[in-house]
Structure formats: structure tokens, C-alpha cells
């Protein structure tokens, strides 16, 4: 395991999301899930980050900002799109101002489906993206893996 996988620093960008994904994402940082176990640190800015975590569908206004944030990250870098909106635009896809999923603007490496995805799924997505940091961008599979389907709503297992 290389050091890149051991210390993926993430920056989170809310791209017009309904905050559902964001709340689940922030749950990852709490003592119950504690992503810092994996060396994951939630940094506040793209200059320090390895992985960009985007939630929500891209619209005409925030596409530019998303692109800027992505470009300010030093490579190697990876992108994780959260939720249905991040993947395709989801429920917002047909809105007049919505462009669609995150990959309309920047290359996405991992899609984490769900509406919203559960924290375990998000963590899994981030760790998969961390593995991709070792792979050159050109060799990466586009839209890497859609492993998880929609989760049933219910209590999380006893943790």
C-alpha cells in the first residue's frame, strides 16, 4: 500500500446539492465512522487535497467554480461524485438550469450512488478513489465503478 492510499486528503464541494449527501458525508467524520482511521483528512481547500468529493448536480452557474476548484488541485488527483445527482443530475436532471452529472464538467473516477448514499458507501468510494491515485489519469477507467445500489432506508447496524 503506497503512502498515497494511506493519506488521501479530501476537499468537499457542494454543487447545488439538497444537502442530503453533505450531511451523510459529514457523518463520515464523526466518531462513529471516523474516516481519519484511514488517514483521510477533510481539508478545506483544493491546494492541499488529493480527492475532490462533489455532491449535487452541476448547473450553469457553478460549473465554472467546480472546474476552478478541480484545476487548483495538484495531481495526482481523483474525483468522487456523491449520490444520484452527482452521477446523472438525479431528480434535478430536467431542471432548466442543470447541466447534469459532475462528469459533464470534470472527469469523475468514482460514482457513489444513493439518495443519499450511506456514510459507509461514501467511505468506500473515497478509499477506492485513493487507490486510483496510483494509476495515471490516462489509464484510469472512466466512470470506474458503480458498486452499490440504492440502500434500503433503515437503522445502521450496531456500530
Amino acid at each position: 500500500m503506497s503512502c498515497r492510499e494511506k493519506s488521501p486528503w479530501i476537499v468537499h464541494f457542494n454543487c447545488n446539492s439538497c444537502n442530503g449527501c453533505d450531511i451523510e458525508f459529514l457523518a463520515c467524520l464523526t466518531p462513529i465512522y471516523d474516516v481519519e482511521r484511514f488517514g483521510i483528512v477533510h481539508v478545506g481547500n483544493p491546494k492541499h487535497a488529493d480527492i475532490l468529493v462533489v455532491s449535487g448536480a452541476v448547473n450553469h452557474r457553478n460549473a465554472r467554480v467546480l472546474k476552478n476548484v478541480y484545476e487548483q488541485m495538484p495531481s495526482p488527483k481523483a474525483v468522487v461524485a456523491l449520490g444520484a445527482c452527482g452521477a446523472t443530475g438525479g431528480i434535478m436532471a430536467d431542471c432548466y438550469n442543470v447541466l447534469g452529472g459532475v462528469e459533464k464538467v470534470i472527469p469523475v473516477d468514482v460514482l457513489v450512488p444513493g439518495c443519499p448514499p450511506r456514510p459507509e458507501a461514501i467511505m468506500d468510494g473515497i478509499l477506492q478513489a485513493a487507490k486510483l491515485l496510483n494509476v495515471r489519469r490516462e489509464d484510469r477507467p472512466i466512470e470506474a465503478e458503480v458498486r452499490l445500489t440504492l440502500q434500503p432506508v433503515g437503522e445502521p447496524e450496531n456500530v
Binding site: 503512502c3 494511506k6 481519519e36 482511521r37
Partner: peptide, 19 residues
Amino acid sequence: RVGPPLLQPIYDVLKLLRK
């Protein structure tokens, strides 16, 4: 929380050096 491994700062720096 559980927290990162003890050597985490070293991993971080080694990663950063190769960016």
C-alpha cells in the same frame, strides 16, 4: 474516535513529496 496510525504524519509527508 480511533484516530490515524501513529506514523500518519510520515505517510502524509511522503505523499505530499510525490505530488
